[in-house]
Amino acid sequence: MDFFHALILVLDSTVRLSVPLLLAALAGLYSERSGVFDIGLEGKMLAGAFAAGAAAAVTGSAWAGLGAAMLISIFLALVHGFASITHRGNQIVSGVAINFIAAGSTIILGQAWFRQGGRTPSLPGEARFGAIELPFAEAVRDVPILGDVYSELISGHSLLTYAAFLLVPFTWWVLFRTRFGLRLRAVGENPAAVDTAGISVSWLRYRAVICTGILTGMAGAYLSMAQNAGFVKDMTAGRGFIALAALIFAKWKPVPVMFACLLFGFLDAFAIRIQGTPLPLIGQVPVQFMQALPYILTVVLLAGFIGKAIPPRAGGVPYVKER
């Protein structure tokens, strides 16, 4: 039973750690499916986390924080769109630029406004997205196995966590069951065909990057308002790139994206759990190896050793209308 409880605890922290990855990876899904590569997920998430921490600290409202996070992320997504859609700039270069702008300005503004070494003030409970106890969670706690699963694993997460997991079927529905989704996928595969049908390629891609902005804003807000109580500098710590890895790992499909994020979240939770304790058969696994594992897995996948990841065909290519 002890082992089972420990397993539940690891899975519980898996869920917590995979939420920001999931939101960011879904964000990237919209953009990349429309043919706009986005390696600026990290920067948008960081800027969102800062905006959320700052706005929630000033107003005392979690919703104001979430709104601010989304607004700033959408703004950065539009900058990316302006450069890569309107001005046909290099999408990779633009994404790199956004990462740096976010990394620098969150620290500078945070220090200038709050004077706590780049942090935002610690948020009180009501300015955060706290844990939601699902009904009967207390009552069924003592039921063996199922009670543990329900009250530890399923209940007791923040609103954003439940939203993130609901966004998976929603994204699937949008992409594969709506007209907008069909067009969005088409514009990522063959923009000329979409253009011929009289639909604006630019406007579709702009809408896709706005979706990216909304979701990266949520991912950032989760970091600074649900997982932590306030913004700390560089708090995304490469999660934007792990999300990107998960997106590729899942071959740009919503449900596999969720499983990829859960896998990477589990690796993280597992690494924290086994820190310092040797594993049977393998012995002591260096922490650094566990930290590098998501990146190694992605490289192996990209090299085509575990099935082939084929990106949207028009990804990364600016669309030039024929004259």
Partner: peptide, 12 residues
């Protein structure tokens, strides 16, 4: 970041 943005992505 701004130099990369304006000299790179927005060079045109």
């Amino acid at each position: 970041g701004l130099v990369i943005l304006f000299a790179g992505a927005l060079e045109h």
